[in-house]
Simulated assay, not measured.
Amino acid sequence: MDLAISQVSGIAVNSGGGLVSENRSEFNSMSDDWVRPFHDIDALTDQNQRMLFRYWQDSHLGGDLPSPDCIDPLAFPTAALPFLVLEEYERDTRRFRTRLTGTAYRDAVGYEGTNRRTDETPGGHAAAERLHWIVEASQPYWYQGPFSFSARPWTAFSVLSLPFGRVDEPVSRVLCVFDFQPG
């Protein structure tokens, strides 16, 4: 399902899934980057992303987002745990704080991100923009782009980001599942 969204929290996403930002400075060197609303599990090639997308779909109660109470790492596929990052949305500051960082993610980026604000980490401003989109849209998204914010031996990465929220607090957590492509 490809959705057209004119503008969400400073980010415009066209019906083809292309990312256009009012602040192009972070994306100028990333012309092939894109973010899109995501609903098609068959489009995922990474098994961890596929497994967590199924978990997220199975956690829906009616038409609402899955509750943050559904986030149970003990129920997640073990193979996916090292590739997870859990972000908490702080409504009062409109910022994100990383609550959980998997070891594969930590090793790939070269720093421990747990308890850090997302926009204060390498590559974090672009990540925060994408996370703001998910808070406003209350939909999962998939993003793929160059791995340019670390000296590690990766050339690209993808991330599937899954929103969790309550009726009174639409999106309060975002579970991110990463896949790193070697160079």
Score class of each variant (00 low, 15 high):
residue 82 P to G: 13
residue 97 R to T: 15
residue 105 Y to M: 10
residue 146 P to Y: 03
residue 175 L to H: 05
residue 95 R to S: 15
residue 41 I to D: 02
residue 127 A to L: 13
residue 31 S to Q: 10
residue 135 V to H: 02
residue 40 D to W: 05
residue 32 D to S: 08
residue 162 L to S: 03
residue 134 I to C: 02
residue 80 A to R: 10
residue 57 Q to R: 04
residue 42 D to L: 11
residue 121 T to N: 00
residue 16 G to R: 13
residue 50 R to H: 10
residue 58 D to Q: 13
residue 161 S to M: 15
residue 68 P to V: 01
residue 117 R to C: 04
residue 141 Y to A: 13
residue 130 R to I: 14
residue 69 D to M: 07
residue 116 R to C: 07
residue 17 G to S: 11
residue 90 E to I: 07
residue 164 F to D: 08
residue 115 N to T: 01
residue 138 S to R: 15
residue 20 V to P: 00
residue 111 Y to V: 09
residue 122 P to R: 00
residue 137 A to E: 02
residue 1 M to W: 09
residue 120 E to K: 02
residue 78 T to Y: 03
residue 152 R to G: 14
residue 85 V to R: 08
residue 118 T to E: 01
residue 76 F to I: 10
residue 41 I to Q: 01
residue 39 H to E: 11
residue 43 A to D: 04
residue 183 G to R: 12
residue 132 H to Y: 09
residue 183 G to W: 01
residue 75 A to W: 00
residue 160 L to H: 05
residue 152 R to N: 15
residue 104 A to S: 05
residue 142 W to L: 08
residue 94 R to C: 00
residue 68 P to W: 11
residue 175 L to D: 08
residue 69 D to C: 09
residue 38 F to G: 05
residue 183 G to S: 12
residue 175 L to Q: 00
residue 150 S to I: 06
residue 164 F to V: 12
residue 77 P to E: 15
residue 179 D to C: 14
residue 156 A to F: 06
residue 77 P to W: 13
residue 144 Q to D: 12
residue 46 D to K: 02
residue 87 E to T: 07
residue 50 R to M: 11
residue 145 G to T: 07
residue 162 L to Y: 06
residue 154 W to G: 09
residue 89 Y to M: 06
residue 105 Y to W: 15
residue 141 Y to H: 14
residue 173 R to T: 03
residue 93 T to M: 05
residue 96 F to P: 07
residue 69 D to F: 02
residue 178 F to R: 05
residue 16 G to C: 08
residue 67 S to W: 02
residue 119 D to K: 04
residue 110 G to C: 02
residue 136 E to G: 14
residue 91 R to H: 14
residue 66 P to E: 03
residue 67 S to G: 00
residue 140 P to L: 03
residue 179 D to M: 11
residue 109 V to T: 01
residue 166 R to P: 12
residue 20 V to W: 03
residue 120 E to I: 00
residue 105 Y to Q: 10
residue 118 T to W: 01
residue 126 A to V: 11
residue 105 Y to C: 04
residue 87 E to V: 12
residue 86 L to V: 07
residue 14 N to G: 10
residue 30 M to N: 12
residue 67 S to E: 11
residue 177 V to L: 00
residue 147 F to H: 15
residue 1 M to T: 13
residue 50 R to T: 13
residue 131 L to T: 04
residue 157 F to T: 13
residue 115 N to Q: 05
residue 28 N to T: 13
residue 6 S to N: 14
residue 13 V to F: 03
residue 4 A to M: 12
residue 59 S to G: 00
residue 126 A to F: 01
residue 90 E to M: 08
residue 64 D to W: 02
residue 162 L to G: 08
residue 151 A to L: 09
residue 79 A to D: 11
residue 142 W to V: 00
residue 58 D to W: 08
residue 162 L to M: 07
residue 60 H to N: 03
residue 28 N to V: 14
residue 124 G to C: 06
residue 95 R to Y: 06
residue 176 C to F: 06
residue 144 Q to L: 04
residue 70 C to F: 04
residue 85 V to A: 13
residue 175 L to W: 12
residue 66 P to Q: 14
residue 59 S to R: 04
residue 144 Q to V: 04
residue 54 R to V: 11
residue 178 F to W: 15
residue 53 F to S: 07
residue 37 P to G: 03
residue 43 A to I: 03
residue 112 E to T: 12
residue 100 L to N: 00
